[in-house]
């Protein structure tokens, strides 16, 4: 069953819900190694996405994702705004004109999103950032699809890999962003950006399960 435009809108609504639920949790993670606003900023950003969504819901998937990206860029602030904003804008460009997505299309879109994040943030794997959750997730999804898995299975693998990547940020020394000024004091804390990225991937898998049921 392909992913439709309404699935994409539904996904953005679910993400807004999940981030609202995890607002305190993300902010708490951020207060240990950042400036204690990641949950607040992400929640504000996705509330803004919800406001912009009705105007583009009948448009193609590319337009919906690009609109979400612009909404994030203009409301999140900090580093997360440009990073998630660029991710959704690049995803939107990869989905331009499409009204349906096969599993392979979704993979290509996620790859484009990650490429955008890497271009904007210049982080490497292991720098204790969102890249540490997104990279293994996308690698796992690609591998699963290559081995004949369906979308739901592939997204489950992606979620498991994102979770592992997120947890693996705990012993790392931060090398990017505000947390990098802590040096060794950043060890022992889970990266908030990797955590929000994991939540975004997990929400995709949850939707795939709900759709299959």
């Amino acid at each position: 069953m392909p992913i439709t435009t309404s699935d994409v809108s539904e996904y953005l609504r679910k993400v807004a819900e999940v981030l609202a639920e995890n607002k305190e949790y993300l902010t708490e993670l951020d207060s240990a190694i950042g400036d204690a606003d990641h949950g607040i900023n992400m929640d504000r950003g996705f509330q803004n996405v919800l406001r912009k969504l009705p105007a583009v819901e009948d448009k193609d998937i590319g337009t919906i994702l690009k609109t979400a990206g612009m909404a994030l860029v203009s409301s999140v602030g900090g580093a997360s705004g440009p990073l998630y904003g660029t991710a959704f804008m690049q995803a939107g460009m990869a989905a331009a004109g499409k009204r349906e997505l096969a599993a392979e299309d979704l993979l290509a879109i996620l790859e484009a999103a990650l490429k955008g994040v890497l271009m904007r943030g210049r982080a490497n794997l292991g720098d204790k950032t969102m890249v540490d959750a997104l990279t293994p997730a996308i690698d796992a999804m690609r591998e699963a699809l290559e081995n004949g898995a369906d979308l739901t299975e592939a997204l489950d693998k992606a979620t498991a890999a994102a979770e592992e990547g997120m947890k693996a940020t705990i012993p790392l020394i931060a090398k990017k962003g505000r947390a990098s000024y802590l040096g060794e004091r950043s060890i022992g804390h889970q990266d908030p950006g990797a955590t929000s990225s994991y939540l975004l991937i997990r929400t995709m898998a949850e939707m795939a399960h709900a759709k299959q049921a």
Binding site: V73, G77, G78, A79, S80, G81, P82, L83, G85, T86, R120, G121, K176, G177, R178
Partner: peptide, 9 residues
């Protein structure tokens, strides 16, 4: 980090 990225965009 945030200022640099937002101004680049």
């Amino acid at each position: 980090t945030g200022d640099v990225m937002n101004f680049e965009m």
